[in-house]
Structure formats: C-alpha cells, structure tokens
Design a binder for these strands. Structure first.
Length: 354
DNA sequence: AACATCTTCAACCGCGATTTC
DNA sequence: AGAAATCGCGGTTGAAGATGT
C-alpha cells in the first residue's frame, strides 16, 4: 500500500495555470498568507488545484521579487561552484541567490550550465589529444623537471597571475556525506553563512581559508566561515582558529590557491608546512616524499567518499573528472608560461621548511 | 512552407522528513 | 508511540517555442 494521495486527483485541475487562477491565489496569499496549510488552501479560495500545485506556483512564480532568466556570470559561477561542492541541493543553492528559485536554477543547470561546462571539457580533451602521458604522470614529470617549490598538487589549483580563469577553478571533490539530520543542518548552517562573505575578486592578495568543507567536525566553531572567492571561483572554506588554516597567496607570476579538500584530507594536510606570509598562509613543499603523500591523501580522500546515491555518484564522477582535467590543464598552462629562469618559486622564503 | 528535431521550462510526481493528532 | 497528514525537495515529463533541413 502506498501513501494516500494528498488530494482527489479526479477533481483537480492540472497543467498550466490561467491568469485568473494566478490572480486568485496571489490575492489570497497576499491578504491572508498561506495559513500554514497548503492542502486546505485551494478549497478555501475555490481553486480546483492540488495544494502542492498551489505551493509550487506561489514559490516559483507568484511570490514577489522572483527573477526569471538572465543569469549573470557571477550567478553562473556560484551555481557551478556550489554544485560541485554540495551536489544537486537546489534549495540550498537557491538560498544563496536572492530572487532565484530552486526550480529555475535546476532547469538552468540542466539545460545550459552543464552543457557549457561539458563543452569546455571536450575542448580541453581535444586540445590534449595525442598526448600519451597519463595525467598524473604528466604532473609528476613536470614537477620532477621543476627544481623549484612544487605547488602542492593536492587541492591546490594553479593559475597564472592576471589570467582570467575560465570557471570552474574548483576543488576536485566528492559529494558531501550528509547522511544524518545533524550533518544536513550543519551543512545548511555553513551554507547560510555563505551569503555576503564573498571575497573581493579584485584583491591581489586575498585570503582563502580552506579546509574540508564536508567535514562537519571542523565546522563546529562559531568562528567558522565559508568563503567564496569570486576571483578564482573557488569556494567554500571553513576557517577558525581551531580548524586548519590554509590560504592562498599570489606569488610573483603565479597564484596558488588552496581550493578545498577531499574528505579526510584536511587533517592530512595539516602535517604539511604552511608559512605565514603577511596575512596569508602559503602551502608548499619541494620534498618529493611529501608531495607523494599529498597526492596520496588527495587521491584517496577524493575517492573514498561513500556516495549517498547511485545516480548522484555518476554525475559526480562526471564533474570530478571535469574538474580534474581543469586542474591538469591549468597546471600545464602554468608550467608552460612560467619562465624557466623565473626565480619566483626559488625565493628563499618559500623554502623555509625543509 | 512544412516537417523534424532540439531546447527550454513550468508543472507534476514520488519519496523522505517533519509535524500533528 | 505510531499512524496520518503535510511539507519540501529533487528528478522527470511534456507542451510550446526555436531552430534546422
């Protein structure tokens, strides 16, 4: 036995709403509110509609200050970043975009943003076709050829100074494991803090405090923050005196960004040297052992997550590989662009923790 | 102009969570 | 405590419009 239907399907109108129905519903709610009972509402105002349908119509269309279409680049970035970090939690994503509804964002993602992203990836792949090296090996080789400080491949995105990154410059992450109500509310609490805490993308020196955004245990402190960096389009960090603090800094020629971490990674990262530079923390290592450890942490951390649903995991695989290729691509770009005689990586201060 | 195919998005559906009785 | 009612969410559908042939 399934659950009882919420309304009498036979006597309920379906399909597009007429202007008259809209007017009735709008007028009633504006005057009386919803009364806390959507199921009873259509009967009160003489609408032959299901209560759920009324609710949806109000929330997605009639409610004041709703925006439709015309998504800005910044909104694109936010949606994209949040999707990669938290998955298809459209209501949470919508909460970060005033005037947008979860339905709108979901539609926008499914019909445009996703394609835009996949199109980027395809171009990337074509550009790299013919290259026989495995991605990881390629990174390592490049690293081996570099005598300078090695950007911590694990979770650190690299991009050239003054080069506008195409989005998403995002962490290679797995979906958050939100299995319990507590986790969910914790995640929500964190996300709520997102609003208004975006970094100013124009700042050359900007702090991105990063930790694993999905490790709820790291987010217990009241001082924890979530940040979105509109410049790098990377996001979602937790920062508190009790959490591990990692930040980004902009070195001459190259900007290193710590952009989040895979589950269980943050604690591992805490073992790696971070140097405070003004108000920034710079993560670095030129120790191959440490580098391998970072890579191992990163790879294992980002592949051991227990996906909560099969359908979600497949889309996450897509997105993860996408982000991964972006990272590789950025790294390659960086390696090609940085002059060989550049001393920026070799600056003594970046070698302090051998 | 006519038809086929693709894209968009409003609306529906089912299900888990929460609240009420 | 447990069943029923309701809410809220995310996935899916299908009509309508846009675009291609």
């Amino acid at each position: 036995m399934g659950r009882a239907p919420c309304c009498d399907k036979a006597n309920v109108k379906k399909g597009p709403w007429s202007p008259e129905e809209d007017a009735k519903l709008k007028a009633y709610i504006e005057q009386h509110g919803t009364g806390g009972n959507w199921i009873a509402l259509p009967h009160k105002i003489g609408l032959k509609r299901c209560g759920k349908s009324c609710r949806l119509r109000w929330l997605n269309y009639l409610r004041p200050n709703i925006k439709h279409g015309g998504f800005s680049e910044e909104e694109d970035n936010i949606i994209c970043s949040l999707y990669i970090s938290i998955g298809s939690r459209w209501s949470i994503i919508a909460a970060q975009l005033p005037g947008r509804t979860d339905n709108d964002i979901k539609n926008y993602w499914n019909t445009r943003l996703k394609k835009k992203l996949l199109g980027k990836q395809r171009k990337e792949q074509q550009a790299r076709r013919g290259n026989s090296c495995l991605k990881q090996e390629m990174i390592k080789r490049e690293i081996d050829q570099t005598t300078s400080v090695v950007p911590a491949v694990a979770g650190i995105d690299i991009m050239m100074n003054n080069q506008t990154p195409y989005w998403p410059e995002l962490p290679f992450v797995t979906p958050p494991l939100v299995s319990s109500q507590q986790d969910q509310s914790s995640l929500k609490d964190l996300l709520i803090k997102l609003g208004g805490r975006f970094c100013d993308g124009d700042h050359h020196q900007q702090s991105i405090t990063a930790a694993c955004p999905f490790d709820a245990s790291l987010a217990q402190s009241q001082d924890d923050q979530l940040l979105y960096d509109s410049n790098t389009m990377s996001l979602l960090s937790i920062a508190s005196p009790t959490s591990m603090n990692i930040s980004s800094t902009q070195l001459p020629n190259t900007q290193y960004n710590v952009i989040g971490a895979a589950p269980n990674m943050s604690q591992g990262l805490a073992n790696f040297p971070f140097e405070q530079l003004n108000d920034q923390y710079v993560a670095y290592t030129n120790n191959h052992q440490q580098l391998e450890e970072l890579e191992r942490l990163y790879v294992s951390g980002s592949t051991t997550g227990n996906s909560t649903s099969a359908d979600q995991s497949s889309s996450w695989e897509d997105m993860s590989s996408l982000v991964y290729s972006t990272m590789v691509s950025d790294y390659e770009t960086c390696q090609q662009s940085v002059p060989q005689d550049s001393t920026s990586f070799e600056d003594e201060r970046y070698f302090g923790h051998q």
